[in-house]
């Protein structure tokens, strides 16, 4: 299935958001996710299913002003 992860298209086997994070190597606890511009709470990642061409954003802390 083709999923856009942080702007980059990827072919993945994952069917849920949680599986996608694992498949893509995101293991940090300090990340947050959005699916098609909507926030997905960490507790809902395992039950959030993916569809072809979904856009997933994965973010982590950085410096800010």
């Amino acid at each position: 299935m083709r999923i856009i992860v942080n702007g980059e298209p990827r072919e993945v086997a994952a069917l849920t958001l949680e599986a996608l994070l694992s498949e893509c190597g995101y293991h940090s606890a300090k990340i947050a996710t959005a699916l098609n511009s909507t926030f997905v709470h960490r507790h809902l990642r395992s039950e959030t299913t993916l569809s072809e061409n979904d856009r997933v954003e994965v973010v982590s802390p950085i410096e800010g002003g």
């Binding site: 893509c24 947050a32 994965v58 973010v59 982590s60 950085i62």
Partner: peptide, 9 residues
């Protein structure tokens, strides 16, 4: 203050 940005794999 802090912020968020895309996390690289």
């Amino acid at each position: 203050t802090v912020s968020l940005r895309r996390e690289s794999v």
